[in-house]
Design a protein around this nucleic acid. Structure first.
Length: 553
RNA sequence: GCGCCCGUAGCUCAGUUGGAUAGAGCACCCGACUUCUAAUCGGACGGUCGCAGGUUCGAAUCCUGCCGGGCGCGCCA
């Protein structure tokens, strides 16, 4: 099954010929559709890149090369005409035979077209979202979820062995505060005057959890709340966390995001891993005592200042647990660790690299893609979001508002490294102004045609002539393998979303100019291959960003 | 002040081994349904690619400086 682009064999043949023209010099022929379709189907600048080492005029090289194309193996029969243009570009027009064979090959490869290009194939552990179990995931987490899951799917598609993990920060003062907040709401439900701590969690979801707890335990703890009993608070913290986590996993699953594991920070403390991590750092000279605290010498690894691991009061910091966690991850045998973090954590990268390096691993095994902020706009104005005021939009609310497909498409449409505004009015629209439907509609239209004309006539050769829209659509399909490859290398699902928009546009244009049902046999055969190929690439691409590809709309 | 990200059409943004006349969506305007889905298509409008230098056949892309915006800089997590 071919997973490569139908352009690849042409590029290889062209490079071979170019190398011979240039006296054996190494040649890599970049061969791609030109900016302007009037120049032809494909263009290459190989003559210009060879000009320097061959010490010849690029146009001269191009002329020689063009002279050989008509008889060159792998090019003859596929290239209809070749012209030299500008400073030394070579513009190629391809034959209907090439288009017909390419469409057939892509259609037959189906879901495998573009798959498995990772080189080398790696075992990759990707950690993302990892929001605290003290509240529901919000829009920022939604972007990280859409991004992380998209990256994971793309990595898997490329042939990597991927594990997805969610780190649960279920330890420390925040959990105590959370437990106290739940307990207070629970008390209120029983008619007590218990109050949520000043710096506690005020959101309405805390009350919802308290209600669930009341349903579970009734008024059993009523008399131990005022003043609060330590053991009861611990119990509320634990059960509250479990209920919160259940909500989080529920919303994440609804968002079509999958995790293989939820890793609890508490297990690191209780199992002694945190202490062992600190001892290892001390033993290797990476940690030292200063003013009663234990410091991690992260400056040795490029951080701007050293960081505290254990406070002078004896308690460990968040970093201490992260040391244990990352030493654990680094020792699992993965080739690469991906930590997807929000923009507000970018200062943490140096520390994490230090952990990996201090553990004796190559710090380059750790990659930390930073997902920039997303803000919501509605009615042309920024939607104010405040955790304190409880006006934060949660993942669940976003899904209820605009739907999973629109949310996932919009959140990965832009590069993760740029902050952007999500326009709720556009995302919510079920009409033509919503880009996600534009792509899905292309898929549904193809399904409609294929339902009417499922079988191609036998023994049909290539059509005599091609419509410009047919050429454009197939050439767009030919770019898919390079697009996924780039999305994999750059950890950039937005490349897939952008490509799907381009592909859908070429399809809709094709649809308007070219009919399928009732045309001449060789035309039907070619266009059916084209449709199957297009449907397959759209479905695969949408699948990689977690969006459904409906057959009817 | 230092670090990361960003500055491209009215708005939101694509554009990464440097390539020909810089693109899309939204908004606005003009056209196209007796046909396989008009959630569509065709056309028009819209640009000092933040500014100034540099590198070269060629720069939105690479380098330097400056201006502007977001985020971060804790013995918080």
């Amino acid at each position: 099954m071919p997973t490569h682009s139908p352009i690849t064999p042409l590029a290889l043949a062209l490079a071979r010929e170019a190398s011979q023209v240039a006296g054996g010099a190494d040649a890599v022929a970049m061969l791609e559709p030109p900016a302007n379709a009037e120049f032809g189907d494909l263009a290459t600048n190989v003559a210009m890149t060879l000009a320097k080492q061959a010490k010849r005029n690029p146009r001269e090289i191009a002329d020689d090369l063009v002279g050989r194309i008509g008889s060159a193996d792998g090019l003859a029969g596929y290239v209809e005409s070749a012209e030299v243009a500008g400073p030394g570009f070579i513009n190629l027009t391809l034959s209907p035979r090439w288009f017909a064979e390419a469409a057939r090959a892509i259609a037959e490869a189906g879901d495998d077209y573009g798959r498995g290009q990772a080189d080398p194939r790696e075992r990759i552990l990707i950690e993302f979202v990892s929001c605290n179990p003290t509240g529901p995931p919000h829009v920022g987490h939604a972007r990280q979820a859409a991004y992380g899951d998209g990256v994971a799917r793309i990595l898997e598609y490329a042939g990597h062995d991927v594990t997805r993990e969610f780190y649960v920060n279920d330890w420390g003062r925040q959990m105590e505060l959370f437990g106290a907040s739940v307990a207070a709401r629970y008390g209120q439900l029983l008619g007590l005057a218990t109050e949520v701590p000043e710096d506690g969690y005020q959101g309405g979801y805390v009350t919802a959890i308290a209600e669930k707890l009341r349903d579970e335990v009734g008024d059993r703890y009523r008399d131990q709340l005022d003043p609060p009993d330590a053991e009861v608070l611990a119990l509320f913290a634990l059960r509250g966390k479990e209920l919160m986590l259940a909500t989080i996993t529920e919303e994440i699953a609804r968002f079509r995001v999958r995790f293989d594991a939820f890793f609890s920070e508490t297990t690191l403390h209780q199992g002694g891993a945190v202490e062992r991590g600190l001892e290892a750092l001390i033993a290797s000279g990476d940690a030292y005592e200063h003013e009663g605290a234990l410091w991690f010498r992260t400056t040795s690894y490029g951080d701007e200042k050293d960081r505290v691991l254990r406070r002078s009061d004896g308690s460990t910091t968040y970093l201490a647990a992260d040391v244990a966690y990352h030493l654990d991850k680094a020792a699992r045998g993965d080739d690469r660790l991906l930590d997807v973090l929000g923009a507000d954590h970018h200062g943490y990268i140096a520390r994490l690299r230090a952990v990996i390096a201090a553990g004796g691993h190559d710090p380059d095994m750790l990659e930390v893609p930073i997902v920039q902020l997303v803000s919501l706009t509605e009615g042309g104005e920024a939607k104010r979001m405040s955790k304190r005021a409880g006006t934060l939009v949660t993942l669940g609310e976003l899904i209820d508002d605009i739907g999973v497909d629109a949310a996932r498409f919009f959140l990965v449409q832009r590069s993760h490294e740029t902050a952007f505004d999500l326009d709720l009015d556009v995302a919510r629209a079920e009409g033509n102004e919503n880009p996600v439907y534009y792509v899905q509609y292309a898929h549904a239209r193809i399904a409609g045609i294929l339902a009417q004309q499922p079988e191609a006539p036998a023994d049909a050769g290539p059509p005599a002539e091609l419509d410009p829209a047919e050429r454009a659509l197939l050439l767009q399909l030919a770019l898919w393998p390079e697009v996924v490859h780039e999305a994999e290398r750059r950890r950039s699902p937005h490349r897939v979303a952008a490509y799907l928009m381009d592909l859908a546009r070429d399809f809709h244009a094709f649809y308007h100019r070219c009919r399928v049902v009732g045309e001449a046999p060789e035309v039907v055969a070619f266009r059916l291959d084209l449709l199957r190929a297009t449907r397959s690439v759209i479905a695969t691409g949408l699948g990689l960003i977690g969006v459904e590809a409906p057959d009817r709309m």
